[in-house]
Amino acid sequence: MLKDITLGQYFPGNTPVHRLDPRTKLILVVVYIVALFSAGGVVSYAVVLAALAAVVVLSKIKLKVIAKSMKPLLFIIVLTGLLNLFYSQGTPLVSFWIFTITREGVFNAVFMILRISMLITGTFMLTYTTSPIALTDGLEKLLNPLKRIRVPVHELAMMMCIALRFIPTLIEETDKIMNAQKARGADFETGSLMQRAKALIPILVPLFISSFRRADELAVAMECRCYHGGDGRTRLKELVYQTMDYVTLIGGVVFLAGVIALGHFGL
């Protein structure tokens, strides 16, 4: 069911990972991604993987949940793996018909699959452990310097916040409408591609209508509470860096430097 999509979902908790400042987590994710792409050998991959594993364990997010959110992306991962497997030049291992599997191909495939999965899992850890509000607050704060060059940072952050907030609502709504149409015998699972595309109309029309209605209502509600953009707006919860954040950030920098160094030596 649609409900099972855990992509971008927040799992409330009170672990060290949950308690970190969202800015710290955002920076760490960037650090992590850079590290992942600088990793060049088995050792550096192992280091990055260990770091990821540590975060997963600390955050107490179940592996089952992570595996579930990977599901929709499984196709892309497998495809990338297969492409790498068959299209890498090098010493042939086996060959049949028009396919040749090379030793490099196997390596590349394994590393690509690992890299994509780690990339996805790493970014998911951010949304799993950070509420959408904290996330946008952090992003707004981090991007604040861009206001000088007239980037509407607050407005962008607000838009992102609203979008994130409404993903679950939208999914729920889609589920409801789908059920209602199924109750009238709509069939989304069988038929040709054309028929299936057509079968989406009874879902999309009501969904769009209710989204517009909701957007309208939200705009009115925000205006009624005197929302007028970011200027002069104060916050209930100011973000403050704690000791833990400084320690983590320093750890992150050391980690990145280490991985880059390892990669440099081809490890």
């Binding site: 059920n179 209602a180 149409q181 109750a183 015998g185 009874p202 009501p206 209508i209 209710s210």
Partner: peptide, 25 residues
């Protein structure tokens, strides 16, 4: 089965077509 607030599931161009959706299926 008629859902709660079923009016939000209407989608056809005319009332007639919307009522006909079930029988057509």
């Amino acid at each position: 089965l008629v859902f709660q607030y079923p009016e939000y599931q209407l989608f056809e161009e005319t009332v007639y077509q919307d009522i006909a959706f079930g029988p057509k299926n």
